[in-house]
Design a protein around this nucleic acid. Structure first.
Length: 175
DNA sequence: AGCAAGATCGGT
DNA sequence: CCGATCTTGCTG
């Protein structure tokens, strides 16, 4: 029986939630059934001071849900074609989030959005309660490595160099 | 009202 | 390396 993380899990800092998400199950229920995936790659965005974050200019129409507290879903359309799936973390008015960049077999945030049929209707979805998108603890490998975040050249060296991308360590194929 | 840029991806 | 494709946020 999958156990869903509760509110307090999402209320931690994005860097903490991000590493905890590696190896967790992500469930997506549609008309054709419920599919599950293992999260393999994420990135943390740490608040208004983080110059890589969408919250760096303060609250706007697009990022307002980032201020609503941990457990909500923040989705946005990038380049007119890819829906990015983010999980809001931290407390109310502390706009942190974790971008889901990969699940088993699908590397890249655009592919994750497409695979899970994510669209604007998921903006604000509550992962603590949702019946179409939720997380669950698992027994899968949780070892990870860290690297700088991808695609944030606009953020400046200081924030660009933060090792806030987390990748599951691949188990050896042979030995 | 107009415009530049974007937490990407796939094909040259 | 470049185009696709469209929403957002800033400027005027």
């Amino acid at each position: 029986m999958p156990v869903r993380p509760e509110r307090s899990f999402f209320e931690q800092d994005a860097t903490v939630v991000a590493q905890e998400l590696i190896g967790k199950m992500l469930f997506r229920k549609t008309a054709s059934g419920t599919a599950s995936y293992i999260i393999t790659e994420v990135e943390a965005y740490m608040g208004e001071e983080d110059q890589a974050s969408h919250a760096r200019f303060g609250k706007t129409t697009r990022n307002a849900i980032m201020y609503a507290g941990g457990g909500h879903v923040y989705v946005y359309l990038i380049y007119g074609m890819y829906w990015m799936l983010n999980i809001v973390t931290g407390r109310v008015n502390d706009p942190q989030a974790v971008l889901i960049r990969g699940v088993t077999g699908y590397e890249g945030p655009g592919k994750v959005g497409r695979l899970l049929s994510i669209d604007k209707s998921f903006y604000g979805e509550d992962l603590v309660k949702s019946s179409r998108l939720w997380l669950a603890h698992s027994n899968h490998q949780t070892a990870f490595v860290q690297t700088p975040r991808v695609g944030i050249d606009y953020a400046g060296e200081f924030w660009k160099s933060k090792p806030w991308r987390y990748l599951m360590v691949q188990p050896p194929q042979n030995f």
